[in-house]
Write a protein that binds this DNA or RNA. Structure first.
Lengths: 212, 212
DNA sequence: GTTTAATTGTGAATTCTATCACAATCTATT
DNA sequence: AATAGATTGTGATAGAATTCACAATTAAAC
């Protein structure tokens, strides 16, 4: 029985791109089929978890053999929405914003960076890696014209909250936030926060509080 | 009753740095006390969750009033291990590695980048932002001499797996991995994976599969 | 002082996730 | 075509995390 999309566990969704990557990797290695055990081994998951996750979307496995790798790559790409092009804007052309704008993995994965926003007069109205750089005041206009769907936020801490609020106001519903600001947002939006200091702090916690 | 550290929920630990940031922010705003409700409001958590999280470590709150902000800042810094200096190495001096090495938030938070590793002869044996750059072959020696405790991995995809394996072999027990490689590791180590493409892919998933 | 309002800390209930364990079924071999 | 071995899909179970709900306590107002 196939789960309806409404009831897919959040944690399953987070793992889908890991599965996709594993399938791609094993395809490169020349494999045709891969078992849940092997997928689990490569990612430190139990085999049962892999099977349960994939079974949310259909019965893709063949008993006694495993999963057809190229079939599952297509399936997961469709499920994840990678069968279309996404229009992405980067906010903040500092070191991190520049690194993200240069990252080739994005375009390969069909996340197309079509605009960069900054407030520095020395940067705006030029291009960076062939991507036009706009002043942040142009946000609403550019978003509307270019139909931007996803924002990546890499502005300095002190302007982070205001920037994110303006992105929400402009109606961009998908946000990947690299700043330490955390801003409440409506249900129909999706925001993922990546906080470098926070990650290091929890690593610090675990290094202290494990018996070793 | 105070929880023993052994039984702190993983998710609580992840939220501690968010609480710390909230306390610092409210201190700057001139507040002395803050309630669980207000902490929750600022971060989209329920008040009950905030109270339960903080109560893992002691009874810090004052009924009718809330939490003493400067006391909690000190407490959380101690719990998270921010009362000491951590020695960090960055692996890979590309755009992302460079951005991370330049990030001032790290040093402020007592994560001190004392070494950068790369394989490019044009980069090694020089300094970057006053940080010495070593050839990756020097890994074990430098780690031993500088007592490096945390590794941040920002190397290209194709060398990621091998790099992480060598970091594990060198005995660095805390790893923050910005590559898409996922490498199984022993229990006493702690590795956190940050995967840009993966985050965007799950944003893509939610944008498609929400009724709107 | 007394009262009212605010807020904590926490057991109990609920919801969400992961694992177990095994029948069902497919492959591969002979 | 019969058998042995591998692997899936999933109901049942166990485990984790979150929320509820309220007694207990403190602050603040008068």
């Amino acid at each position: 029985m196939v789960n309806t999309l409404r009831t897919i566990p959040l944690f399953t969704v987070e793992r889908l791109s890991i599965y996709l990557r594993t399938f791609r990797e094993s395809l490169v290695e020349g494999m045709d089929f891969i078992s849940s055990t092997e997928i689990g081994k490569r990612n430190d998951f139990t085999a049962a978890q892999v099977r349960k996750d994939l079974s949310c979307f259909g019965n893709f496995g063949i008993k006694g053999k495993g999963y057809n790798i190229s079939e599952l790559i297509n399936t997961l790409e469709t499920i994840l929405g990678l069968d279309r092009e996404w229009k992405v804007a980067i906010f903040g052309l500092g070191k991190l914003g520049g690194a993200l704008a240069s990252y080739k993995g994005l375009k390969n994965a069909r996340f197309n960076v079509v605009a960069i926003f900054d407030v520095d007069p020395k940067k705006v109205d030029k291009t960076y890696k062939n991507i036009p750089v706009y002043h942040s005041d142009m946000l609403k206009k550019v978003v509307r014209e270019k139909k931007i769907q996803i924002a990546i936020v890499a502005v300095p801490t002190d302007s982070a909250k205001a920037t994110i609020q303006r992105i929400l106001d402009a109606g961009i519903e998908g946000i990947l936030n690299f700043t330490e600001a955390r801003v409440p947002y409506p249900d129909e939006y999706i925001m993922k926060n990546i906080n470098l200091a926070g990650e290091l702090e929890s690593i610090s916690y675990y290094l202290i509080h494990s018996d070793r």
